[in-house]
Every structure is written in C-alpha cells, then in structure tokens.
Design a binder for these strands. Structure first.
Ligand SMILES: NC(=O)c1ccc[n+]([C@@H]2O[C@H](COP(=O)([O-])OP(=O)(O)OC[C@H]3O[C@@H](n4cnc5c(N)ncnc54)[C@H](O)[C@@H]3O)[C@@H](O)[C@H]2O)c1
Ligand SMILES: NC(=O)c1ccc[n+]([C@@H]2O[C@H](COP(=O)([O-])OP(=O)(O)OC[C@H]3O[C@@H](n4cnc5c(N)ncnc54)[C@H](O)[C@@H]3O)[C@@H](O)[C@H]2O)c1
Lengths: 227, 227
DNA sequence: CGGATTTTGTTAACGCGTTCACAAACTCTT
DNA sequence: AAGAGTTTGTGAACGCGTTAACAAAATCCG
C-alpha cells in the first residue's frame, strides 16, 4: 500500500545507478535549452539529441525516477525539468566552501555558472595569512581555523580542496572534522575519509594524459597491418 | 615470429581498455612517490595501496602492457615507471594550446603541475582584442586568427577550450581546422567534431551536482512514505 | 637439491551499464 | 469506434570492467 511513486515496493532506498545520476544534470541543461527555445513538449529522441546520448539510454535513465512521460506524446519539458531538479536536489541551493584560493580556487570563486546549477560558493578559506582577510569575487577569505564555525553557521556539507597536494589530506581531515560530508578534490593526491563521507577527484593532468595517449596511438598509424 | 612484447599474436593494434588507460597516470604518480621514498622494488599490493586501487585490478591493468614484474619478487619501480611512461607517451612532452584565457584559462596557464606529467602549455589564444598581446605566465596571448600558424609551427595536436559555452563549437571547429586532433572541453556545451578527433569534457558543475545529490539522500533519510 | 614461501599473470565468474526490441498506452484520422 | 501511427517504459541480451582465485614462476632456506 501507499506505493505512490517509488519503484521499490518496500518504499525505502531506491538507488539510482551512479552512471544515471551523472547524466541527470546533462538532461537538466538540455531541458533548459529547450525551454529557452520555446519548446514545451519533447520526445526522448529530441531530448537525447540535445543531451548527446542514446535515446534508449535516456528513457532507461528517466525510468529510474518514475514515469513522467506520456506514451505517444513525449515529455512535458517543464514538468520533467522540475522532476529531475527535485530528484538531484536542485530545488534548493547548496552552499560550498573552497579551501585554497590560489589560481584554481580563485577561478572557481569567480565562476558565475555554479549559481544556475544550485551551487553557491558561500565561503573561502586559506592558510596563507597574506590571503586571509582579502576579498575575492566579493567574498572575504577566512582563516583555516574558522572552518568549523563557518561550516556550522552556514550549514555547509560540501567542501572543495584547491590546495597543493601536500596539504590535501590535512585539509580533508579538517573539513570532515568541521562537519563536511562531501568533498571535491582538485589536488593530485589520494585523501582518506571516514565512511559516510563522499569524495570525488578531478585530475586535469590525467585528462590531458589520456588525450596524449590517444595522440600517440594515432601517430603510430604508419604501421601497416600487412603480412 | 618477432613477437617481442605484443600480447596480440598478429602484432597489430593491441587496444588497452579505456578504464586502464585512465589509471596508468595514477600508477605513474604512485611509482614516482615510491622512488622519492627510496623504494626500488614493490609488490602489486604496495603499489595498489599507493594508487588507491584493488591489487588484482592493478595486476590486470599492467598485464595489458606486458609482463614487467617478477613472480615471487614484484616490480622494479624505475623499470615499471619507464614502461608505463613509454606506453602513455610520457617520454616526450606534448604541447597544448589553451583557447580562452579568462579565469579558468589563466589558472591552467599558471599551473606548474602539468610539466612533470609531460604536458607543456605552448600557446594561449583569445578572441578579446584587449587580451591579445598581453602576457600570462610568461606566454604572450595570440589572436584566434593565428591559431593555424601556431598549431602548425609548434606541431600541436591537443587543444583546451576554456571559452564560454556559446563559443565552444566555433572554437572546436577552428581547432580542428587548424589541425588539432584532441580537445579537452571545459565549456558546458556539447561540441561536434569529425571522426578521428577525440573530445573529453570536464564539467565541474556536474561534479558538485553529483555530490549534492548524495547529500540530499543522506539528509532525506527521515523520509516516511506513509499514506 | 627440494620443499616452503612469495608474488605475478591469467582465467573465470560476477556485476554493472548499454543497447536493442517490443508490448503497452496514448493520439489522430476516418 | 476502430484502426493506423507514435512514443514511452521495460525485459532481455550483450559487452565491458571488476574481482576473486589459482597455477606458474621465482626466491629463500635448510
Ligand atoms: N591551477 C590549475 O589550473 C590546476 C590544474 C590542475 C590541478 N590543480 C591542482 O589544484 C590545486 C590548487 O592549484 P593552484 O594552481 O590554485 O595552486 P596555488 O598554489 O595557486 O594555490 C594554492 C592555495 O592553497 C593555499 N594553501 C596551502 N596550504 C593550505 C592549507 N593547508 N590550508 C588551506 N590553504 C592552503 C595556498 O595559500 C594557496 O593560496 C593544486 O593541488 C593543483 O595541483 C590546479
Ligand atoms: N571559472 C571556473 O571556475 C569554471 C568552472 C566551471 C566551468 N567553467 C567553464 O570554463 C569556461 C571558461 O570559464 P571562465 O570562468 O574562464 O570564463 P571567462 O569569461 O573568465 O573567460 C572566457 C575567455 O574566453 C574568451 N573568449 C570568448 N569567446 C572566445 C572565442 N570565440 N574564441 C576565443 N576566446 C574567446 C574571452 O575573451 C575570455 O577571455 C566557461 O565555459 C565556463 O563555463 C569555468
């Protein structure tokens, strides 16, 4: 009974696959683009093309959320947009703290694109006394010691590490101690965190190294497969 | 005959799985760390721990490259480091061009960490006349019109898009026309490229949105599905 | 030398994600 | 109202990546 819209009968955790979660923001952006074009209804083909994915994959992904389309018709753009936004928590804004406001941290602080995705840079923290107290993109840089107070006061659950790799583990420890339970790590270092804390790592060097690998393979195409 | 070290008997393309390619740079860094610690030999367990992966996965990955370990002993750190570096093309430096030197492009230009990974930022390009001619991190910013000459002269095969999303497709077209065959795209936009050109996309907003999704799930554990 | 020990390289099972293909459900037309 | 046309939602097949398990190969030691 009371099976409102939970795929799982027991009503508890209905896990959406990681791969799907990673694509939902892409669909959201595609839906926004359609709205701007004045489109109010779309088929899975339309949306899939805008999002750059296979239509079957799109429908499969959406099926994890529920059944928000109409057979023979398609999806109501605005309705679907809202449902996805609700599912991934974009009906509210998420405050994040950036630790380390060097080159990368400053660029992230200045980025306007986060706000339309439900992300708000709420605080900046740095260990360098010369940076503490300065203002970057309208936010005053705080000391690392103030981290617990900041996290508590603004109810921050997401932290970004943009310090050198050598400081990454210490910063992660302090973030966790302060109450942060999700971390985006830009430093080229492995960080250990307790259970219940999520860590995602972005390594821009590796992205380029992967491209370089493929370039090397392309360059080696002078190989003739003949006998 | 002459089966020197190619797993495939016919000696032609031996494809290393994408997932493995993406981890090879991680192993490389772990090996460098071990070298700095004065370690000259290590087991798959040691290395796997340093790299943050399952030992079985590590051995499986390395097996795609060849058989560079010694049973009962382990791997020679320096030898394995060289073999991986050669495999992913890190015995040479790869010149890259960054298009769009705003906040993010400037941060990337200033990053010292690329050089130790075989990546060299060789040129900066921007469409804004006010930026062209200025010097960022020791490199003079060129005009978009000079892209073909730059790519040709420096034999650049990798380009980075750090422009607004609206310009991404046009920049990609120009990069490809200039001869670039690998693109790292930071703009939140889909870019279409011809066959033979690789594109990787880094979307920092999505990384944060994924974390926000999991945060919401953690927070939403008080959900009662009752009637 | 031979057996115990260590550790690799590889095979096989498993799980997750992608894709196909189609019945179910809706609209439109006559 | 019935049949033709659309499009969704999903079951099933497939492929890729991960993990466990083990035989093969090396060292160590008595
Ligand atoms: N800049 C890039 O484009 C780029 C690219 C790839 C990776 N990264 C990585 O991102 C991280 C930041 O890069 P960056 O170029 O901005 O470096 P940066 O040196 O410009 O800035 C680092 C900042 O961290 C601060 N810091 C140092 N230790 C700290 C600590 N314990 N607590 C708080 N703050 C501390 C420093 O004061 C400084 O402001 C590095 O790990 C780098 O490897 C950067
Ligand atoms: N800054 C960040 O932290 C951040 C985070 C996530 C994503 N991004 C994305 O990265 C890209 C760059 O971000 P940013 O903050 O550096 O933007 P920015 O506005 O600071 O810089 C953009 C630069 O691109 C140049 N440009 C514009 N059109 C161009 C064209 N056709 N050819 C060449 N250059 C052109 C501009 O002159 C400017 O210098 C954007 O797509 C943004 O969405 C940035």
């Amino acid at each position: 009974m009371t099976i409102l819209r939970t795929p799982l009968a027991d009503g508890s955790a209905r896990g959406i696959p990681d791969a799907t979660v990673a694509r939902l923001p892409v669909y959201l952006r595609a839906l926004n683009a359609l709205t701007e074009q004045g489109v109010s209804t779309c088929s899975s083909n339309d949306l899939a093309e805008n999002a750059g994915v296979n239509p079957a994959k799109l429908r499969k992904d959406l099926s994890y959320l529920g059944s928000y389309g109409t057979r023979g018709v398609g999806y109501d753009v605005e309705y679907l947009r809202y449902q996805i936004a609700r599912e991934i928590g974009q009906t509210q804004d998420w405050d994040v703290v950036i630790v380390g406001v060097g080159n990368l941290g400053s660029a992230l602080s200045a980025y306007q694109g986060f706000s339309t995705r439900g992300i708000r840079v709420a605080a900046l923290v740095d260990a360098d006394p010369k940076r503490v107290g300065t203002t970057i993109s309208g936010i005053t840089v705080s000391s690392l010691d103030d981290l617990p107070a900041i996290v508590e006061e603004r109810a921050i659950s997401i932290g970004i590490i943009a310090t050198p790799g050598t400081a990454a583990q210490e910063v992660a420890d302090r973030l966790v101690a302060a109450g942060v339970t999700s971390i985006l790590n830009f430093a080229p270092a492995l960080v250990q965190v307790p259970d219940g804390v999520d860590v995602r790592k972005v390594d821009l060097s590796i992205e380029l190294q992967i491209l370089a690998y493929h370039e090397q393979r392309k360059a080696g195409n002078d190989k003739v497969v003949g006998a």
